[in-house]
Amino acid sequence: MSLREVVYCGVCSYPPEYCEFTGKLKRCKVWLKENHPDRYNELYGAEDETAEDAAEIDAVGKKLGESSIGEERENKLEKDLLKLQTKQENREQRELAKKLSSKVIIKREARTKRKFIVAISGLEVFEIDMKKLAKTFASKFATGCSVSKNAEKKEEIVIQGDVLEDVETYIHSLLKEKGMENVKVETIDTKKKKKPTTETK
C-alpha cells in the first residue's frame, strides 16, 4: 500500500477526468496532450484533431459518458456543458479585451518644495501583487513606497521621491516580461521643473 500520485490539470487544476466540466476543455486537452500523452489517450482516445470543435466535444462526452442516466439526460448534459464552454470562452475574451484596452498611468505630483511623489495606477488588471511590487520599488529606489486607494477607490502604488523615468522604464520591462507590450503607459507630469538646468543627477 502506498500513496497515489495524482496528476492535476495545469489549466483548470482539476484531475483531468473532470476537465470536461470546467468549460475550459479545449485548453485542458491541449495541456494534457503535451504533458501527459498517455493520460490523454486514455481519456479522450486518439481522436481526429481536425474534427469540428463541437463534434469533438460531443465525441468526448459520449466516450466519457457511457452511462446509465439515459440518452435524453445525457444529451441535455452535453448541451449544458457546451453552453458553459462558450460562456467561459466569451468571458475570457472579454477579460483579454479589457486587459488590452486598459492603460497604466504614472503620475508625478509635487509636494512641498522640491519633493515629489510618483503614483502608479491601473496596474490591478495585470494580476500583480501590488504589495510585493511596492516592496520591490521601495528597495529598488531606496525610498518609501506603499499601496493606497486613490480618488476613484482604486488601488495605486505611491512612491516617495522623483523617480518618474526609472519607474517608466521598469514598468515597460515588466510588461514586456508578461508579454503585454501593447498596453499603453501614460505618464503625467503635473508640475514641470522650473529650471531644467538645475537638474541634479
Partner: peptide, 19 residues
Amino acid sequence: VHKFPEAYPTVQVDRGAIK
C-alpha cells in the same frame, strides 16, 4: 483523498449530478 482514496467511506453520484 486523491492520494489514498481507499481509506474513506465513499458514495458515488451519477453523471448528471457532477455539474
